Structures are given as C-alpha cells and as structure tokens.
Simulated scan of single mutants.
Amino acid sequence: MTIKEIQNELIEDFSFFEDWMSKYEYIIQLGKELPLINEAYKTDDLLIKGCQSRVWLHADYQDGKVVFTADSDAIITKGLVSLMIKVLSNQQPKDIVNSELYFIDEIGLKEHLSPTRANGLVSMVKQMKLYAMALSAKV
C-alpha cells in the first residue's frame, strides 16, 4: 500500500469513532500492538529530540524499503509513534521524504494534542524523514 492509501484508510478508521475519548482509546490500542523495538536500540542516541516523553526510534533498510521500530514510556505517545510507523514503515525512502502527512489534520489529531505532544509528533515525523534521507543516500 502507498502512504496515501494508508492515510486514507486511517482517516476512514477514525471516522467510525463518535468522540475523542474513543479515538484516544484506539490510539492507545495501536500503541499496544506496536511490535517491540529491540532493547539494544533503546539508547540515548536513538531518542527523538523534542518529545516530552522518551521515544526511541530505529530505522532499518530492507529490500529497498525503510522499516521503523519504536517504543515509548508514555502510552499515548506510543500510540502516536505507532500511527506514524503504520503510515511510513515499509516504504521507499524517497516516498517517505516526499510524503505529505495530511491524515494528522484530517482526523483532528493536531487540535486534540497538548502543545508538547504536538511538538513531539512534529519531531517524530522530522526524525523519520531524516532517517529515510540518510538511508536513501546509502543506496
């Protein structure tokens, strides 16, 4: 699936929820389903700068695609990083770098996050795009 198709699917998924409590529960559920990052990658150099909570993000290059794994010590943040991985993992570096992540606004996420969480989300996206850029340079 393309980044655009995944975003459209997420927008549709979120449209089923009546209120933000239900949407938060869904985000938390996604966080619980996040494949665990290898403990070896839970190092300070893999922490995302700008996140209030601790978020570790690792990128790997497999078969021409970037594969992200992550973890966080905060349940909502873990859900947010899980959303980003759902959209950007297993995609080609150039597609990640050029992606326009409109689903964040479409599902109303930005306006329902505290300013520090919203900043953290921006930092997450920035870091994922930087990893994709670095990995595409290696190819």
Rank of each mutant, 00 (worst) to 15 (best):
131 Y>E: 11
32 K>T: 05
52 Q>D: 00
23 K>H: 08
7 Q>I: 11
92 Q>I: 12
82 S>E: 03
79 G>W: 00
126 K>A: 12
105 D>P: 08
72 S>K: 02
43 T>G: 00
27 I>E: 02
86 K>Y: 15
82 S>V: 03
139 V>G: 15
20 W>S: 09
109 L>S: 00
136 S>N: 15
103 F>L: 09
26 Y>T: 02
112 H>A: 07
27 I>Y: 02
65 K>E: 14
115 P>C: 06
15 S>Y: 03
80 L>W: 08
12 E>R: 14
47 L>M: 11
24 Y>N: 07
85 I>R: 06
23 K>A: 02
54 R>Y: 01
134 A>G: 06
55 V>Q: 00
85 I>D: 01
41 Y>H: 13
5 E>W: 07
25 E>K: 12
4 K>A: 11
91 Q>L: 07
64 G>F: 10
102 Y>D: 12
18 E>K: 11
110 K>R: 15
39 E>R: 04
37 I>G: 01
19 D>W: 02
82 S>P: 06
41 Y>C: 05
88 L>G: 03
17 F>D: 03
136 S>G: 13
123 S>R: 01
81 V>H: 00
68 F>G: 01
127 Q>C: 09
67 V>Y: 06
24 Y>S: 05
41 Y>F: 15
103 F>H: 05
3 I>Y: 07
3 I>D: 02
2 T>W: 11
61 Y>F: 14
21 M>Q: 13
63 D>H: 13
127 Q>L: 12
114 S>E: 06
137 A>D: 14
102 Y>E: 12
120 G>I: 04
111 E>H: 09
97 V>G: 05
71 D>Y: 03
110 K>E: 12
102 Y>M: 08
30 L>I: 04
28 I>R: 06
88 L>M: 13
98 N>Q: 15
81 V>G: 02
99 S>A: 15
31 G>F: 02
132 A>V: 11
45 D>T: 13
73 D>C: 09
104 I>V: 15
73 D>L: 10
119 N>L: 08
115 P>R: 02
95 D>V: 13
26 Y>E: 13
40 A>F: 08
74 A>N: 14
13 D>W: 04
87 V>T: 11
110 K>G: 06
115 P>L: 03
68 F>R: 01
15 S>T: 10
103 F>R: 04
10 L>W: 05
55 V>R: 00
134 A>D: 14
79 G>Y: 00
83 L>S: 05
44 D>N: 10
6 I>M: 12
66 V>P: 04
74 A>W: 03
87 V>L: 05
85 I>T: 12
111 E>G: 05
23 K>Q: 08
41 Y>N: 12
80 L>Y: 10
91 Q>P: 09
111 E>K: 15
37 I>K: 03
98 N>R: 14
43 T>Y: 00
83 L>C: 08
137 A>R: 12
71 D>I: 05
101 L>C: 08
2 T>R: 11
28 I>E: 03
30 L>G: 00
6 I>Q: 12
16 F>C: 09
92 Q>Y: 09
33 E>I: 04
86 K>N: 14
71 D>Q: 06
61 Y>E: 03
84 M>I: 15
131 Y>S: 07
112 H>V: 08
125 V>S: 05
124 M>C: 09
82 S>I: 03
